[in-house]
Structures are given as structure tokens and as C-alpha cells.
């Protein structure tokens, strides 16, 4: 009994720790006050300000297109890379896999400055090119890592069978291989999106001077103290928290059922 109470208490305490800051922001996004802790009555004023703030809307847009572009490019490149690695000889596959680990294991700041060194050398420092490549460096290895296991699970005979039945290699690839590893590709894509959305450090070192994502904008607002003069940012955070939590829960609750069945087999 005591054990049970302790267990529940621990879980509850950790959940409070995790969600208290988020809840605080969400609650105070519904009052028109510059300072958290001063309740000025319930209102949607901050949300109004948020959607009328052209700058923040632009940044939201930037963040989303960057994530989509980087994730899409990383997914194509990474999927092809994984297929290539899977069918290559060990001598080729091993070093490629090892190199794929570098951005995964590396500290983000080191990745960021290494790219800064490279791009300043070829006069592409702080351009859209360096930004997208920076995000691709973060994301692509994760795509490879999510696709490779699916390739290993795949029944390798199906590809040969397709060829024997008269498919061209490309047809076999798209109609036989890709569908079988599709779940890996999808999870690589989604992972890329979350990685790109989450990133601050690489973005800060590769972004064009006048370009901001949510991460860089909010961090700068904290540095400059403008987060207290722009309470609309609170509404932005609250909105992102709630939207992300809802999406994640929805995706997960739906995805869990078949997965559980699979495991039961």
C-alpha cells in the first residue's frame, strides 16, 4: 500500500514538474497582462495581438516551411542513402554508417561551428543555403537510422520476384521496396520535422541575418527582455504547447492500437 502511494506520488510529482511551466503559460495567456503573476481578468486579447502581429506570423511561417523543406529533402536523401547502404558491400556501408553517426553523437554547437567554418570559406555563410543544409545535416542521419532497420526486416526475395515478373528496377524499387519500408520513411520524416522545429543552435549559426525561426526569435526576445513587453509571445507558446500535445496524443493513441496487436502476435 505504502509502495503504491509512493509510486503514485512520484509520478504525480514528476508530471507536475513537467507540466507546471506549460500550464502557467497557458493560463496566463488568457489575461492581458505584461507580467506573469498579475492577473488582469480573463481575455483573449493576447491571442488577438498574436494573430495581428505580422512579424510573429512571418516567423511562424518561416519555421514551418523550413521544417517541411529540410524534412522533405532529408527524407529523400536519407531514404536513398539507406537503400544504397543496405545493398552496398560492407566496405562501403560501414564507413557511411559511421559517418552518419557523427551528427547524431556530436554536440550541436560543434556541428554548428563546423558548418560555419565551411560556409564562411565558400562565401555561403548565413544564407538560406547554409540554413537548409544545416538542418539537413541534423535530420538526414536520423532518416537513415529509421529506414535501415525496416530494410533489414524486409523480405529481400520480393524485390527479386518483382524483377523476375518483369518489373524494371525502378518499378521494383517504388512498388515493392518503398511500400515495405514506408513506415520507416514516414517516421524519419516526422522525426526530421520535430528535429528541425526544435533546433536553436545550428539555426543560430547558419541563418541569414534577417531570418528568424520561433527558436531564435523567442531566445532573442528573452535576451532583449522584449518577451515581457510582447506578451503575445505567451499566447504563441501556449498555442504551440496545446497544439503539439493534442497532435502527439492523437497520433500516438491511434498508432498504439495496431502496434500493440502486432506485438501480441
Amino acid at each position: 500500500m505504502v509502495k503504491k502511494i509512493l509510486s503514485v506520488a512520484l509520478c504525480a510529482a514528476v508530471l507536475v514538474f513537467i507540466y507546471a511551466p506549460i500550464l502557467l503559460l497557458v493560463v496566463y495567456s488568457f489575461t492581458d497582462s505584461n507580467v506573469i503573476g498579475r492577473w488582469e481578468g480573463f481575455s483573449f486579447a493576447l491571442y488577438g495581438q498574436l494573430f495581428r502581429n505580422a512579424e510573429i506570423m512571418q516567423i511562424l511561417f518561416n519555421t514551418v516551411w523550413l521544417a517541411l523543406a529540410a524534412a522533405a529533402l532529408s527524407t529523400v536523401l536519407g531514404t536513398a542513402g539507406a537503400i544504397g547502404i543496405f545493398y552496398s558491400r560492407r566496405r562501403v556501408a560501414k564507413p557511411l554508417q559511421a559517418a552518419s553517426q557523427i551528427p547524431v553523437i556530436n554536440a550541436e554547437i560543434v556541428t554548428a561551428i563546423s558548418l560555419a567554418l565551411l560556409f564562411s570559406m565558400i562565401a555561403l555563410y548565413r544564407t538560406y543555403f547554409s540554413l537548409i543544409v544545416g538542418h539537413m545535416v541534423l535530420c538526414t542521419p536520423f532518416v537513415v537510422l529509421s529506414v535501415l532497420p525496416k530494410l533489414k526486416q524486409m523480405d529481400s526475395n520480393t524485390y527479386e520476384a518483382a524483377l523476375d515478373l518483369g518489373a524494371t528496377p525502378a518499378q521494383a524499387l517504388f512498388k515493392v521496396v518503398v511500400p515495405q519500408i514506408f513506415s520507416g520513411i514516414l517516421s524519419g520524416f516526422m522525426l526530421s520535422i520535430t528535429l528541425s522545429l526544435d533546433d536553436y543552435i545550428v539555426t543560430a549559426f547558419t541563418k541569414p541575418p534577417m531570418f528568424d525561426t520561433i527558436s531564435t526569435y523567442v531566445y532573442n526576445a528573452v535576451r532583449n527582455g522584449t518577451n515581457s513587453s510582447t506578451p503575445a509571445l505567451r499566447a504563441l507558446s501556449a498555442l504551440i504547447f496545446v497544439v503539439m500535445i493534442v497532435i502527439l496524443l492523437a497520433v500516438n493513441l491511434r498508432a498504439r492500437k495496431p502496434a500493440a496487436k502486432e506485438r501480441a502476435k
Binding site: 529523400v76 537548409i132 525502378a170 524499387l173
Partner: peptide, 17 residues
């Protein structure tokens, strides 16, 4: 198409930028 798509992957950042 595959080759083109892959080439695009490397070049698209240029194009976009």
C-alpha cells in the same frame, strides 16, 4: 526520375535560396 530527384535534393537548397 530517381536520379533527378536525388540531384534536386542536393541542389534544391540552392534553388530555394
Amino acid at each position: 526520375i530517381v536520379t533527378t530527384a536525388l540531384a534536386l535534393c542536393l541542389l534544391l537548397p540552392f534553388v530555394l535560396s
